[in-house]
Design a binder for these strands. Structure first.
Length: 431
RNA sequence: UCCGGAGUAGCUCAGCGGUAGAGCGGGUGGCUGUUAACCACUAGGCCGGGGGUUCGAAUCCCUCCUCCGGAGCCA
C-alpha cells in the first residue's frame, strides 16, 4: 500500500514511494522531460517525469493539465538540490481528477482590485497562504497565552442595543422592528465577565462603519479583549507586553518557513523583549514637538505622529495617560491629575501604528454616571453596566488587541486586507 | 466625507489629435534538468458610461460611475 502524504510531512519518506493529492501549481517542459509542480495546501513539490519512465500516455495527460487542475501523483521522493524545497518526486504515475478551466491568476503580476475580486482563488497563492498560516499561529498563541494563565473565554454578543462609544460608526440592522447594532467592542460585556470570573478574554469579530480607506482599516476585524478584576493600568500594560512577547516567540518557533516565504526580516522580531518602553502622552507630545510636528497638548495622534513615536524605538512602545477629553467615557481618571485618563496605546515598531488600546476602567458609580452624561450617551442603555458598580465594584482594567494589525506587523503584510481570508472594507463586500 | 491618482486585449501596461500596440496568459509546433524555462507561429478590443469640441477623439473639455492611495476616526 502506497501511503498518501502531505508535502509538509515528506521528509521521513526520502527514498520511498508515496502518493500526493493536490493541484497543479505550475508546469514546465523540456523535450522529453516534464516538470509538474504540485501544491497540496501544506507545501509545494516539484515532480519530474521523463518519457522513458512514464510512457506516452502519462506524458499526454501531463500536457493536457492546466493550472490548478486537481490530480494525484505517485512516485519516489528524493533529496534533490536542483529542486525548490530540497526534495522532488520522480513521477511514476499521475491521475487527473479535474482539468481546470483557464485560471485567472497567472504567475505574472496583477493589480489588487483584480486579486481582491478573486480572493477565493488568491488564497491559494504562496504569499497569501503563508500570511493566513501566520494568522492561525497568532490566534493559537493568543488563546494558549490566556488559557495557560487560566483566563476564562467569555464570548460577548454580536448584536448590541446601543453604542459604547457613539452610534456614528456602527452598522445598524433591523432586529424584529427594533434597531440593533453590530458590536464594535465586547468590552462592556467583558467587564461584566471579569466581575463573575475574575479574569476573562473575549475573542471575536467586531464591526466599525468608519469610512476609512487605509492599509490599517477593515470594517470587520477580530479583536482579543482581556478584562481583569483587581488589575490597574500598570498591570494591564504588563499583560499587553507579555502577550505580545509570547505571540512573537510562538510564531518564530512554528512559522519560520512562512516568514521566509514572506521575506520577513525576522531579526526585527527576534529582538522583541520585555520591558517595552513606556512614555506618557505628555512626553510623547514633547518628543513630537522636538521632531518638528505641529501638535498641541490635548490633540490626538494621527498616523504620522504614531510613526514618528514608534520609529524612535525598536520595541513596541506604550504611550499612557492621555488627556481624558479625547478618550472613552469608561476610562478612569488619573488620581494624580484629573485631566488625564488611565489609558494606554501600544504602537508596533516599523511604523505599524496602534495594535493595542486599553485602560483602567472607571469603577465609581457617580463618576461613571457623570461621564455618561458628559458624553451625551443615553443613560438608560447603560443601566446594566452601572450595576457592575453597584454590586461589588472593584478596580479593573483590560485592553483590546487588533488581530489583523498584529498579524500584518508580524507577517510583514503591507495591508491588513491580506491578513484575513475574506476582508470586509468600505468598498469591498464580495466575494 | 475631503484631497490626490487611475480606468485601453483574460492580466500588467504603453500610446496622449491622424490605420489599436507590447509583455505575460491562451492555442499550435519544437526542445532530455526546467526554476515566473526558452524558441517560432497564432487567435484575442464597446480604449469605464453619457454628452460636447473637431474634417477627424483612446488622446482635448464637461459629467457620472468604479477602483486605488491618503486624511479625519480608530484596533
Amino acid at each position: 500500500m502506497i501511503p498518501h502524504v502531505y508535502i509538509e510531512d515528506l521528509a521521513p519518506f526520502d527514498g520511498q514511494k508515496v502518493t500526493l493529492r493536490g493541484w497543479l501549481y505550475h508546469k514546465r517542459s523540456s523535450g522529453k522531460v516534464r516538470f509538474v509542480v504540485v501544491r497540496d495546501g501544506t507545501g509545494i513539490m516539484q515532480c519530474v517525469a521523463s518519457l522513458a519512465d512514464v510512457g506516452e500516455k502519462i506524458f499526454e495527460s501531463i500536457d493536457a493539465l492546466t493550472q490548478e487542475s486537481s490530480l494525484t501523483v505517485t512516485g519516489t521522493v528524493r533529496a534533490e538540490p536542483r529542486a525548490p524545497g530540497g526534495y522532488e518526486m520522480r513521477l511514476e504515475s499521475l491521475s487527473v481528477i479535474q482539468i481546470a478551466e483557464e485560471y485567472p491568476i497567472t504567475p505574472k503580476e496583477h493589480g489588487t482590485a483584480f486579486l481582491m475580486d478573486h480572493r477565493h482563488l488568491w488564497i491559494r497563492s504562496r504569499r497569501q497562504h503563508a500570511i493566513l498560516r501566520v494568522r492561525h499561529a497568532v490566534v493559537k498563541a493568543i488563546r494558549d497565552f490566556f488559557d495557560e494563565r487560566k483566563f476564562t473565554l467569555f464570548d460577548p454578543p454580536i448584536f448590541t442595543p446601543a453604542a459604547c462609544e457613539g452610534t456614528s460608526t456602527l452598522f445598524a440592522t433591523d432586529y424584529f422592528g427594533e434597531k440593533a447594532y453590530l458590536t464594535q467592542s465586547g468590552q462592556l460585556y467583558g467587564e461584566a465577565g471579569c466581575m463573575a470570573f475574575g479574569k476573562i478574554y473575549t475573542f471575536g469579530p467586531t464591526f466599525r462603519a468608519e469610512q476609512s480607506k487605509t492599509r490599517r482599516h477593515l470594517t470587520e476585524f477580530w479583536m482579543v479583549e482581556p478584562e481583569v478584576a483587581f488589575l490597574d493600568l500598570e498591570g494591564a500594560m504588563e499583560l499587553a507586553e507579555d502577550v505580545i512577547v509570547f505571540v512573537i516567540a510562538r510564531v518564530l518557533e512554528s512559522r519560520m518557513e512562512e516568514l521566509k516565504t514572506l521575506e520577513r526580516d525576522v531579526s526585527l522580531l527576534e529582538r522583541i523583549k520585555k520591558p517595552f518602553p513606556r512614555i506618557t502622552y505628555t512626553e510623547a507630545i514633547d518628543l513630537l514637538k522636538k521632531s518638528g510636528h505641529d501638535v498641541e497638548w490635548g490633540a490626538d495622534f494621527g498616523g504620522d505622529e504614531e510613526t514618528t513615536i514608534s520609529s524612535r524605538f525598536d520595541q513596541p512602545v506604550m504611550v499612557h495617560r492621555f488627556p481624558a477629553a479625547i478618550k472613552a467615557f469608561y476610562m478612569k481618571r488619573d488620581p494624580d491629575d484629573d485631566r488625564l485618563a488611565l489609558g494606554f496605546d501600544m504602537l508596533a515598531p516599523e511604523g505599524r501604528g496602534e495594535i493595542i488600546g486599553g485602560s483602567q476602567r472607571e469603577d465609581d458609580l457617580n463618576n461613571l454616571v457623570a461621564r455618561i452624561r458628559e458624553h451625551d450617551l443615553p443613560p438608560e442603555a447603560f443601566e446594566w453596566f452601572l450595576d457592575l458598580r453597584r454590586y461589588g465594584s472593584v478596580p479593573h482594567a483590560g485592553f483590546g488587541l487588533g488581530l489583523e494589525r498584529t498579524v500584518g506587523w508580524i507577517a510583514g503584510a503591507q495591508h491588513v486586507r491580506e491578513t484575513i481570508p475574506f476582508p470586509r472594507m468600505m468598498s469591498r463586500l464580495r466575494p
